[in-house]
Amino acid sequence: MALNTPQITPTKKITVRAIGEELPRGDYQRCPQCDMLFSLPEINSHQSAYCPRCQAKIRDGRDWSLTRLAAMAFTMLLLMPFAWGEPLLHIWLLGIRIDANVMQGIWQMTKQGDAITGSMVFFCVIGAPLILVTSIAYLWFGNRLGMNLRPVLLMLERLKEWVMLDIYLVGIGVASIKVQDYAHIQAGVGLFSFVALVILTTVTLSHLNVEELWERFYPQRPATRRDEKLRVCLGCHFTGYPDQRGRCPRCHIPLRLRRRHSLQKCWAALLASIVLLLPANLLPISIIYLNGGRQEDTILSGIMSLASSNIAVAGIVFIASILVPFTKVIVMFTLLLSIHFKCQQGLRTRILLLRMVTWIGRWSMLDLFVISLTMSLINRDQILAFTMGPAAFYFGAAVILTILAVEWLDSRLLWDAHESGNARFDD
């Protein structure tokens, strides 16, 4: 018995066209964080690309023209004298008006014999932002004059995390709450300039795509075929072959399989920071003279006294001054041990922890910024005066060393310790 099946006739004509040209192939790229070699397709503007294995951002879609970056830099340069030299806060102490600005706080630190601690604050609040705007201006002028731009481009990517104007702005709020127990506070004209400078700096850093600047100024022929001998440069993120001198053909720094002496430098910085954190938390970090009496505060006791007036601000200072430094030390110690013992479990967790400490590390400088600003506000000789204690130097040095330890660690070593050939990683 035959089955009668109805015929289905399409209502619209289906047209099949042959592909007349070869589909576009992607360029081969190595991930600078996990060293995976993959094919990167062509990316349009405002599109980002991520590593298929570790999800690290390979290409950032946010990109401004150099002219727009230069305009932002010149605007920031105009704001800087007002943000640093004009009063941020006014207080009335014992019937006398006192003005506080950024430069005055750094000068008070240096004047009291601790120039190293003052230079830490100076670099993060004044030096690094000033280098940022002058570097962008150098790129703008240098591109037109045919100057060598490689050193500036190499420095810009590392400079971003040292620009800490946003953290200093939080420190202004913390210092205001600490001082309000002794005097009446009012915002100064410099505060508005400083807030504007923070906003412009944040926007500029978020749109400063150094890798795209490398592509514009020093374009290189990408690798179009897969080759395990391809290496990625950690300076400019170019994937290719080393030249005859073993250097990256684009930025001219040595092109090595792994960062040289990464573990040794990381261990040295980490152990030194552990040693410095002990006096930083045991010795007094601030000293207040009130009517001839002397009151010393460690980091913890200062947080407890701050909690009596504002528990939320005390929580912020606790996280930045105690929780973050010790968390960074514990995480980095764990990561280094996992590399030495070739741990194969929990790779995803370790990668996330490394990215976390990379982002939060700079916030530990908050305590030094609060001390710097408070020193310029309260300084009335023996009637009422505020000065920093010996722990300030140890704390600042420990924070900087932990930042350097994270920067010096080559994250690809975590993958080397893991089993080879993993296309995915999980716990």
Rank of each mutant, 00 (worst) to 15 (best):
A2G: 05
A2W: 03
L3P: 01
L3I: 08
L3G: 06
P6S: 05
I8K: 10
T11P: 08
K13H: 05
T15W: 10
I19L: 09
E21S: 09
P24S: 07
P24N: 10
Y28A: 08
Y28E: 08
P32N: 06
C34F: 00
C34A: 00
C34V: 00
M36L: 08
M36T: 08
L37S: 06
F38Q: 05
L40G: 08
E42D: 05
N44M: 05
S45P: 07
Q47H: 04
A56E: 10
A56D: 07
G61M: 11
G61F: 12
S65N: 11
L69K: 04
A70N: 12
A71V: 10
A73E: 13
T75I: 08
G85F: 04
L88R: 00
H90M: 04
N101F: 02
M103F: 04
M109D: 03
T110Y: 01
T110K: 15
D114W: 08
I116M: 13
T117R: 02
G118T: 03
S119F: 05
M120F: 12
I126E: 03
T134C: 12
I136Y: 06
A137V: 06
Y138L: 06
F141I: 15
G142R: 01
G142H: 02
G142I: 05
L145I: 13
G146A: 06
L149P: 10
M155I: 04
L156R: 04
E157P: 15
L159P: 01
L159S: 03
K160C: 06
E161M: 12
D166Y: 15
L169W: 03
G173H: 02
V174L: 15
V174D: 00
Y182G: 04
H184I: 05
H184C: 02
V189C: 12
V189Q: 08
S193C: 04
F194K: 04
L197E: 07
V203E: 05
E212F: 15
E212L: 15
E212G: 15
W214C: 15
R216H: 13
Y218A: 10
R221V: 11
R226T: 12
L230W: 13
R231E: 07
L234A: 13
L234I: 09
F238M: 10
G240P: 08
G240N: 14
R245S: 10
R245T: 10
C248R: 01
R250Q: 14
C251A: 00
L255K: 13
R260F: 10
L263D: 09
W267T: 14
L270S: 09
S273T: 15
S273Y: 02
I274N: 13
P279R: 07
N281F: 03
S286W: 00
I288N: 01
L290K: 01
N291Q: 10
N291F: 15
G293N: 08
Q295A: 12
Q295F: 13
T298A: 15
L300W: 15
I303E: 01
S309Q: 06
V313M: 14
A314W: 05
I316T: 15
V317G: 01
F318E: 01
L323W: 06
V324L: 15
I330A: 13
V331G: 14
T334P: 04
L335S: 07
S338V: 15
K342V: 14
L347W: 13
L352M: 12
L368A: 07
L368K: 03
S372V: 06
L373K: 07
M375Q: 12
M375K: 10
S376W: 02
R380N: 01
D381A: 10
I383N: 01
L384S: 02
A385K: 05
P390H: 11
Y394F: 07
F395Q: 01
A397E: 05
A398N: 11
L401F: 09
L404T: 06
L413E: 10
L413R: 09
D416P: 10
E419H: 13
N422R: 10
A423I: 15
